[in-house]
Amino acid sequence: MGSLQLNSLIKQFGKNTDGRIAVNGISLEVTQGEMVGIIGKSGAGKSTLLRMINRLVEPTSGSISFDGTDVTSLKGKALKKWRSECAMIFQQFHLIDRLDVLTNVLTGTLGRRYNILNLLKIFPKEEKINALKALHKLDLLGKALQRVETLSGGEQQRVAIARALMQKPKILLADEPISSLDPKNSKIVMDDIKKINNEEGITVICNLHSLEVAKQYSKRLIGLSEGKIVFDGPPENLTQELSQELYDLENE
C-alpha cells in the first residue's frame, strides 16, 4: 500500500554525445510512511531525482510507479492529480512574495478548481478553514494575512509546508528545505517535517546537504554520487570512508 517504485531512472540534459547525465539508472522502493533522507554533494543528481518524481522534469528513460500506477505516462488531469498528491517544497521556498500568507497556502489547491474561480481569487470557505488549520499546526496563524515578503526565511519555509499540506499529499518531496536557513530555523523546519511524517503518515523524501541533519531525522539514508546510488540503508551502516566519499571529494 502506497509504495513508490523507481525503475532504472535516467535523466540526461542536452544532446546524446555531450549531454550531462544527472541521474544515471536509479532504482529504489519507498514504502508509505517512510522518511528518507537523500544525501550527496551538490550536482550529485538529488534535485533532478525529486523533480522527476513530481514530473517537473521528464525522465529520459526508466519508469516511476506509485501503488502500481505508472506515473511516467500520466497526462493532463491525471498528471495534475499526481502532482498534487506528491507535494514539493523548495530550497528558496518559491512563494508569491507580494500576496498574503493565506493566499499562498491556498495556492496548493489551485489544480482542484475551475480556472474562472482561480482567476477571480475566489476560494471556498472550507478551503480557507483548512488553510488556517494548516497554518495553526505550523504556529503561523497570527501571520495569515501578512504579505509573505514581510516574513523571515524560516517562517516562509513553513508557509511552503502549509501549502504542501493543503494538497493532502501522500508524499512530501523536500528539495534542500533548510539550505537557506540559519541553524535555529533549520531545526524548527525539520521538526515540522518530521511531525508531518509521524502524525499524518505522509512519506517524506528529503534532499539534505548536511549529513548530520540527515542522520538525526531519517532512519533510512540514500547516498547519491554522480547520479548513482552508492548507499542505501540506516545511518548506522554508513561508514566513515563512504561518508567521506559522499561529501569530502570536493576538498581534494
Binding site: L102, I129, L132, K133, H136, L141
Partner: peptide, 15 residues
C-alpha cells in the same frame, strides 16, 4: 480545534 474556533481566530479572512 473546531472550524468555529479557527474562524474566530482569524475572522478577517472570511470577510
Amino acid at each position: 480545534m473546531t472550524n468555529k474556533d479557527i474562524i474566530s481566530l482569524c475572522p478577517q479572512a472570511f470577510l
